[in-house]
Simulated scan of single mutants.
Amino acid sequence: MALVAEFDIPCEQLPLVSVAAAVPAATVVLTLQFNHGNRPQFLITVTDGSQPAVETALSEAVDVAAYTLIGEAGDTLRYKAEPALSLAEQLGAQIDDLSELEALATEDAIIDRIEVTDNGWTQTGWFANREAFTEFRTFWQQNTGFRLSRLTHEGEPESPGNGLTDRQTEALRTAYELGYFDIPRGASLEDVATELDISASSVSERLRRAQTQLIEETVAPMWPPLPN
């Protein structure tokens, strides 16, 4: 039976890590198009990020040769980018045998989602069997590191989603645990920002977007229409 895994690969040499670090308030999701030789094209989705800040980060990234804004919908920006580095140039100093990395692409596995963080990638993947998962995990453990967050069998029930990004959830939880929502308030916005190591304005934006999303998913659908 297939396995579904969520895991972190801590490696600052992975593509677009510098971009995620430059826009800490944003969620950066990457799709790789491996049909472009040894420089797979980047398809980038950015949520909750300032467009000028995102594009400055893309322009300054050493692993991005050029980028194009493909579309914009609400708080989401979609880009296509050409890599500036080959796999050897990007990861050669970190990974001993790049042929092993290329072989992973032919394994019985599909990576559903790559979220780029300021120190690596957070991924969700499907693996045909435990052997395929073990080979994938072993490779990254031997080269950069591997932290497993969740491992389930295909078809096992999961808790329903709420539409929040991981960073919005983190901001809400941290603010709650510090007492930001208490009456009287037990922590300031600056306290939450210090705990998350981001600016107070970024915390404020994450909390507002998270609260709006929760209202839209839970309370708003039950409201009667406003009178004309």
Rank of each mutant, 00 (worst) to 15 (best):
M1E: 11
A2H: 00
A2P: 11
L3Y: 14
E6K: 04
F7W: 04
F7Q: 02
I9N: 01
I9L: 09
P10H: 02
C11N: 13
Q13H: 09
Q13P: 06
L14T: 03
V17P: 00
V17F: 00
S18R: 04
P24L: 14
A25Y: 03
A26M: 13
T31N: 02
L32G: 02
L32I: 01
F34Y: 15
N38A: 08
N38V: 13
R39P: 05
R39T: 14
S50N: 13
V54L: 06
V54P: 04
V54D: 00
E55A: 07
T56L: 11
T56C: 05
L58F: 02
S59I: 05
A61E: 05
V62G: 10
Y67W: 15
T68E: 15
T68G: 07
I70N: 10
I70Y: 10
I70F: 08
A73S: 13
D75Y: 06
R78M: 08
K80W: 06
L85Q: 15
E89K: 08
L91P: 04
L91W: 13
A93I: 09
A93K: 13
S99A: 11
E102G: 12
L104N: 00
G120C: 13
T122M: 01
Q123M: 10
W126T: 09
E131C: 04
F133A: 00
T134N: 14
F136N: 01
T138F: 00
F139G: 02
F139A: 01
W140Y: 15
W140I: 06
T144Y: 02
R150I: 11
R150D: 14
L151C: 08
H153R: 15
E154I: 07
P157A: 11
P157F: 04
P160V: 06
G161P: 10
L164C: 03
Q168M: 08
T169Q: 15
E170W: 06
E170P: 09
E170C: 08
R173D: 14
A175F: 01
Y176V: 05
E177Q: 13
G179A: 05
R185Y: 09
G186K: 11
G186V: 10
E190C: 02
A193H: 04
D197N: 15
S201F: 12
S202I: 07
V203I: 11
S204W: 03
S204F: 06
R208C: 06
A210G: 05
T212M: 13
L214Q: 14
P225T: 11
P225F: 07
P227E: 12
